[in-house]
């Protein structure tokens, strides 16, 4: 069975670069609650592909620039 990937993101940094966009503003734009944005930012919750794309579109960035797999968590299958 393969180990789960550790998915991180740059949302905090991207919000900062977008005029310090608030978590609530981002949540409103992508149609989720602020608690969900907090959970995603803290890597507690991995969003669906649709929500991940919505977040990437909000920042006008490719998906891979917003979400990435933590080093060392790829290819460690047991």
């Amino acid at each position: 069975m393969s180990k789960p990937l550790v998915i991180r993101n740059n949302i905090r940094k991207l919000r900062f670069n977008h005029d310090e966009m608030t978590q609530q503003a981002l949540a409103d734009q992508v149609g989720v609650t602020r608690q969900t944005i907090i959970a995603i930012e803290n890597a507690k919750y991995s969003p669906s592909l649709e929500l991940a794309f919505r977040i990437a579109f909000t920042f006008d960035m490719p998906l891979a620039e917003v979400f990435f797999v933590e080093d060392g968590s790829v290819g460690r299958n047991s």
Binding site: G31, V32, T33, Q35, T36, A39, Y45, P47, S48
Partner: peptide, 9 residues
Amino acid sequence: ESSITDERD
């Protein structure tokens, strides 16, 4: 409170 029920909920 927001009335949204999102995918995480």
